[in-house]
């Protein structure tokens, strides 16, 4: 079993007006095979947490720690974090000029496993994963994210997760911009990978809708850079009823 442990994490970004603290001390422990949902209003720091885990250069960790089975994640470069088994499904995946999906997936797999995947097996794996995500195989010849619709970009993120088999995945608002069919397909993908690999999941979302398809073991409510409340999935149901207002009023 693996553990991703975040302790008293404080993160800031540079702004024109100087550094601005976004995360104000986050504690979170995720074990393999667990799903943690992080919910919260816009601007509460949910995405910042995702980027800080992945190591985006724009986010400065001021204090605290992130460890993966005791290894210091913050000391690792971005690619080393992926090699350690972390994966971030991004909210706004960028277009990569001139790189086809097929070439990208194969290069990433090779980088993670240290050797090129066996062609026949790999082609089969890719096709199967794409079929189950209802992605046409013509996607493979398109440039990464270029001209993809919002839904296609999200499927492509989950496709990568399925093929790269991380130990922990952070899903940053993977549900936003998805119609109901795409939401179901993507959720099935997440459940499939979780089951197959005992993957730990940190699911960041605004809405409770995705939680009908992906059952969280824990729900954390994020407000103003901190976890304001924690509970089981019944907390999500309560949020559905009441919204975030009572946290926001309390924090004023």
């Amino acid at each position: 079993m693996s553990v991703l442990e975040i302790k008293d994490l404080k993160v800031s970004i540079e702004t024109d007006a100087g550094p601005k603290q976004i995360l104000k001390g986050v504690d979170l422990t995720i074990n393999s095979d667990q799903i943690h949902a992080i919910m919260g209003p816009n601007g509460s720091g949910k995405s910042t947490l995702a980027y800080a885990i992945a190591g985006h250069p724009r986010y400065n960790v001021d204090s605290g720690s992130i460890t993966l089975d005791g290894e210091d994640v913050l000391e690792m470069e971005v690619d080393e974090r992926a090699q350690a088994g972390l994966f971030l499904a991004m909210q706004y995946p960028v277009e990569i000029p001139g790189v086809t999906v097929s070439n990208f997936l194969r290069t990433a797999k090779t980088a993670l496993t240290g050797e090129a995947p066996k062609i026949r097996e790999w082609v089969g794996d890719v096709r199967e994963a794409m079929d189950s995500l209802r992605m046409d195989s013509s996607f493979q010849e398109r440039n990464v994210n270029e001209g993809f619709s919002g839904g296609e970009k999200k499927r492509h993120e989950i496709l990568q997760m399925e093929l790269l088999r991380p130990r922990f995945a952070v899903l940053d608002e993977t549900d936003s911009g998805l119609d109901i069919d795409a939401l179901r397909v993507v959720s099935e993908g997440v459940n499939r990978v979780k089951q197959a690999n005992k993957m730990g999941v940190l699911l960041i979302t605004h809405y409770t809708r995705i939680l009908r398809y992906i059952q969280p073991d824990f729900v954390h409510v994020f407000v103003d850079g901190r976890i304001a409340e924690e509970g089981g999935r019944e907390l999500a149901d309560r949020l559905e009823e009441e919204g975030y207002d009572r946290y926001l009023n309390a924090s004023v």
Partner: peptide
């Protein structure tokens, strides 16, 4: 960042592109 977050080194990312 996107390419590196998939485990691809900076050097390899540039080469790929």
């Amino acid at each position: 960042f996107y390419l590196q977050s998939r485990g691809i080194s900076g050097e390899e990312a540039r080469r790929l592109v």
